[in-house]
């Protein structure tokens, strides 16, 4: 079950550049929240703070203590020499091969893609594996940085459905530029940065 996450007065600067200034929000437990903003507004910085990869200059985050995290990053960050199934099992070894293959097939990654290392995949295929890795992990909280980026309209719909289904009951924070995407994943709130 997901948990409520509270961000209070988060500020982060890199030299003279302020990436995030006094950001405050509550992300309700077990629901999808979307963050929308133009490029360079600090969305990725916010996610990195929530992931524990950056420390804010000021402000605090609560609700993530002891939480298991799953993430889709700006980049796909897959182990290029491993297959799609192995990349997913890397974060959750207990998951059965058949179950993963079924999930991959549901987002259009059929049998012909299964035996190949992901380095041979197209950008869109890698993105889907990256998304499934997060969705099939045992995370309570999913932090997704433009997870549908680079997918065609039809694949976007399929991936959004998978996200809605697998994200159910978890706290999901999703960064996107696209309001239709926010609606497709069933966002309960949209926060403009």
């Amino acid at each position: 079950m997901g948990m409520e996450i509270r961000a209070e007065g988060l500020t982060k600067t890199y030299g003279d550049v302020t990436a995030l200034s006094g950001f405050t929000a509550v992300f309700p437990a077990g629901a999808v929240s979307c963050i929308m903003a133009p490029s360079g507004a600090g969305k990725t910085t916010l996610l990195r703070i929530l992931m524990g990869l950056e420390t804010p200059d000021s402000g605090s985050v609560s609700g993530l203590e002891g939480a298991r995290l799953g993430a889709v990053f700006q980049e796909d960050r897959l182990c290029e020499n491993l297959s799609a199934v192995s990349n997913i099992r890397l974060v959750r070894p207990s998951l059965g091969k058949a179950e993963i293959e079924e999930a991959l097939a549901a987002v259009g990654l059929g049998a012909e893609a299964l035996g190949r290392p992901v380095r041979e995949f197209s950008g869109g295929m890698k993105r889907r594996v990256s998304l499934l890795r997060a969705l099939l992990s045992d995370a309570d909280v999913l932090l997704l940085d433009e997870p549908l980026k680079g997918l065609d309209a039809e694949t976007k719909q399929v991936a959004a459905r998978a996200l809605r289904e697998c994200g159910h009951g978890r706290t999901v924070i999703l960064v996107t530029h696209d309001e239709a995407e926010a609606a497709a994943v069933g966002a309960v709130q949209i926060i403009q940065l």
């Binding site: 992931m51 524990g52 990869l53 298991r68 995290l69 799953g70 993430a71 990053f73 980049e75 960050r77 182990c79 020499n81 491993l82 192995s86 890397l90 974060v91 070894p93 992990s137 995370a139 932090l143």
Partner: peptide, 24 residues
């Protein structure tokens, strides 16, 4: 470093990080 960050966020155990990330 990006793959290592991924391992950190997903909290992969050290053994799995070495076996599947560092070795390759």
């Amino acid at each position: 470093p990006q793959i290592l960050e991924m391992a950190r966020v997903f909290r992969l155990p050290a053994g799995r990080t070495v076996r599947y990330i560092y070795v390759s």
